[in-house]
């Protein structure tokens, strides 16, 4: 906006703090909102990406180990079908020890009966102990599918042993360290966090810069309207919207003019009354 009259500090006239002191606070507010949204979005996206990876990765690991368990199960069940009792299958100990030797990540493989008593275990010291009732029930509940569980920092994958009668005779458990999965997905977590942080930094700056530009224009416009108002009211003249001024600015110019008109008119009226008053 441009004033026809002389310029002076409008703010002084209005008795307000300088417009400079509030400059940018609008942009600050909106920045806060936008950057929060950015943080939220990126964290959520990273979270989902990570968890998806984690679930695919751990289910892949689990399916591999359940395949190992399945191999053992087939061998054990074949022997069961020959009519031997589970606890008599001495060769099972050999089978599970061979499978464990193949993969250093396997912590233990154990075979237990329907009561949960461990009959064979790669950790021979554990033979004769009992597995938790949860695992016994899990084996009974899932007559064909593998089941998973966690135990402290170990992951467990198990399969039930089913005899010719279709009855669950016990189960096989394979334990592998949770740390194995954590190690596998840990790299991604670090990488994701780093990327997220970098992107957050860069785009926060961009967001803030963009908002300062956007609201800078708003605030310049407001400032210029404010100055015009002050000038016109304190010193007179006319507010003429700049070329390309929007309808609001035109209306504001009218307002300024009308205000000036009103103050002028009231002043004149006051003076006139004063004259009349003094005249008498």
């Amino acid at each position: 906006m441009r004033q026809d009259g002389q310029t002076s500090l409008a703010a002084g006239f209005l008795g307000l703090p300088s417009a400079r002191s509030v400059r940018g606070s609008l942009a600050r507010k909106v920045s806060l909102a936008l950057v929060s949204i950015l943080v939220f979005t990126l964290l959520l996206a990273a979270f989902f990406a990570y968890y998806k990876f984690e679930s695919v990765y751990s289910s892949l690991v689990q399916s591999r180990y359940s395949f190992v368990v399945f191999t053992v199960k087939k061998k054990v069940e074949d022997s069961l079908n020959l009519g031997l009792a589970l606890r008599q299958l001495r060769q099972v100990q050999e089978i599970i020890e061979r499978e464990k030797a193949r993969d250093s990540q396997i912590l233990s493989i154990q075979v237990y009966d329907a009561q949960g008593e461990v009959l064979f275990d790669t950790d021979r010291g554990a033979i004769g102990t009992f597995v938790g009732s949860g695992l016994v029930d899990a084996a009974k509940a899932s007559s064909a599918q593998s089941f998973g569980a966690t135990d402290d920092d170990m992951l467990i994958v198990g399969l039930p042993l089913v005899n010719t009668l279709g009855k669950v005779e016990g189960g096989i458990l394979l334990r592998y360290p949770q740390a194995y999965v954590e190690h596998g997905v840990g790299g991604l977590l670090i990488q994701l966090s780093r990327t997220t942080a970098e992107l957050l930094a860069v785009f926060s700056v961009l967001a803030v810069a963009g908002l300062y530009i956007l609201f800078g224009r708003v605030s310049r416009k407001l400032g210029s309207m404010e100055r015009t108002l002050g000038t016109v009211l304190s010193e007179g003249g006319q507010a003429v919207p700049e070329a390309g001024g929007d309808p609001f600015e035109e209306r504001f110019a009218e307002f300024v003019t009308k205000s000036r008109e009103a103050t002028d008119h009231i002043r004149e009226a006051t003076e006139e009354i004063g004259r009349l008053d003094r005249l008498a």
């Binding site: 209005l14 307000l16 703090p17 509030v22 606070s25 404010e226 108002l229 002050g230 103050t263």
Partner: peptide, 18 residues
């Protein structure tokens, strides 16, 4: 307390002045 607030105060001040 932002630019808009400042503007509104100035605007109101003009009206109050009248």
């Amino acid at each position: 307390d932002d630019e808009v607030g400042h503007f509104v105060s100035g605007f109101n001040a003009a009206l109050r002045y009248c």
